[in-house]
């Protein structure tokens, strides 16, 4: 095996779960996510000489994210994101309140659905920050946006997620009745 490939695998294969998780959250489909991960690893390997050490996880996730977007662009160019109507003045009910008296399974299900309903730009910030633990600075680099935008997107994303969660829970409560 080439020395370069051995090094590459040693650094980046441990992030396979993280890479898959991000791709899976962006495209919402297992097989597509797997294809994206494979392509992203290939791209990363080809660009390995441009990797200057440092946070390999953030570097790889940036590539996964970009690969996922070009994949979406290629495979579903006409798919328009559903315009998101923010309920600007709606009261934000915190998870702690709205998830009260709900089973753990339901919490997870509602939360997943709530995140899926968010526009991708918010979804990716939440996944990368809350699940993958990237810093604001790494997010700014990965998404190619200023740190200030990272701040406001994450902040708004959290609020929207709570709103969606509340809506889903309320709808379920109505259906359940």
């Amino acid at each position: 095996m080439g020395e370069e490939r051995r090094q590459f695998e040693e650094i980046f294969l441990p992030f396979l779960d993280a890479a898959y998780n991000l791709a899976r959250w962006i495209v919402q489909h297992d097989q597509d996510a797997q294809d994206i991960v494979q392509e992203a690893y290939l791209r990363a390997f080809k660009g390995f000489h441009g990797f200057r050490g440092g946070n390999g996880r953030a570097w790889l996730l940036t590539i996964v994210r970009n690969t996922a977007y070009s994949w979406i662009h290629k495979h579903a160019p006409d798919e328009k994101l559903v315009p998101y109507e923010e309920e600007k003045h709606a009261e934000i009910i915190s998870f702690d309140q709205s998830a009260r008296e709900i089973t753990t399974e339901k919490r997870k299900e509602y939360l997943e659905n709530a995140l899926v309903r968010l526009p991708t730009e918010y979804r990716e910030v939440i996944v990368l920050y809350e699940l993958e633990g990237l810093s604001y600075k790494e997010l700014a680099l990965a998404l190619d946006i200023p740190v200030g935008t990272v701040m406001s997107r994450l902040s708004r994303g959290r609020r929207r997620l709570q709103q969606e969660f509340t809506q889903i829970r309320n709808a379920e409560a109505v259906n359940g009745l």
Partner: peptide, 30 residues
């Protein structure tokens, strides 16, 4: 809120076989 997300949001793990697929892709390139 942040804690709630971290605790309850599903984290997808790479399905078995993905690792070997990735390694095959890399080997072909190499």
């Amino acid at each position: 809120c942040s804690r709630f997300i971290r605790v309850n949001l599903p984290v997808y793990r790479a399905p078995p076989g993905l690792k070997s697929k990735v390694r095959t892709t890399l080997a072909n390139e190499d």
